[in-house]
Amino acid sequence: MGDATLWVAALTAATAVLASWVTSHGTARAARIQADAAAATVQADRLRAARRSAYVDVIEQAQRMGDLYWKVTDAHGIDDADERLAALLDLRVRLRGEYAVLRQRVWVADLEGPPAVAAAADRLRRSTSEHYRALDAMITGDTDAGQRFADCFAPFWESVVSFVDVARTALHSARL
């Protein structure tokens, strides 16, 4: 009877050690999975925040340029030729500066990705070219340039709206 008790005690001890090892291994694995999931969530949140910031910067800069486009239209309507030329020259300098900022912000949006947003941002950037050409023509006295400038606003604004739509879709997609 003593031998059976020894075997039962040894078997019980071995079972307890094995159960303890399995439990600790499972707990450690579960903790590792939970930590990995938390790290992935934090990384996704950081990426989403960086992208959102980059996209908002592009939108804000496009708005600044749009505001200057309205000022160009107003300046083109000035009756005094010297005053009109001075206003248009000043606005061209200001637009160059704002374009430089837009270009930099488009590069950041391109860096943050995804490719669809980068492409939309670049289309927005390129949509400013015709405005600039028309402004230069206004400065040189081209009589049709004012209308060409006005005609550029709708495509520019459409590129802004398109960028916002693509950026929104990218931010709300399941995969970043």
Rank of each mutant, 00 (worst) to 15 (best):
D36C: 04
D57I: 00
R175G: 02
R123D: 07
V164T: 09
T169P: 01
F163L: 10
A49F: 03
D36E: 15
L135V: 02
I139V: 15
V117K: 07
T15E: 04
A35E: 14
V161K: 11
L85D: 07
D122P: 02
L171A: 05
H172D: 13
A16V: 09
A30T: 10
W70K: 10
L6F: 03
E98G: 03
F149Y: 13
L11M: 11
L124S: 06
Q43D: 08
V22W: 14
L102R: 01
G141Y: 11
R84C: 06
T23P: 01
D136E: 15
R94P: 01
R123H: 06
T23G: 09
G2C: 00
E158R: 14
A62L: 12
V166M: 05
A38N: 05
A134K: 07
R168C: 01
A10L: 15
R105I: 02
T5C: 01
A16L: 14
P115N: 04
R64N: 05
L47K: 11
S162E: 13
V161D: 14
D82L: 10
T12W: 01
A154T: 11
D110V: 06
Q61I: 04
M1Q: 02
C152D: 13
D3G: 06
V160F: 12
R48D: 04
D36K: 14
Q61H: 05
E130P: 02
G113W: 09
I78M: 09
Q63P: 00
A62T: 14
A120L: 06
A100V: 02
D82Y: 06
P155H: 08
A116E: 15
T143W: 00
R133P: 00
A10G: 15
A54T: 07
T140A: 05
M138A: 08
D36T: 13
A14G: 14
D79C: 01
V117S: 07
W7V: 14
D67P: 00
A145N: 00
G97T: 11
V117N: 01
L85G: 01
V42T: 11
A54F: 08
T15R: 00
T15Q: 08
L124C: 10
W157F: 12
H172K: 08
C152T: 14
T23E: 05
F149V: 07
S159T: 11
A121T: 03
A49T: 06
H25K: 12
Q61T: 15
A19D: 01
L85P: 05
T169A: 15
D165V: 07
A134I: 06
D82M: 11
D79W: 05
A37W: 07
V22N: 00
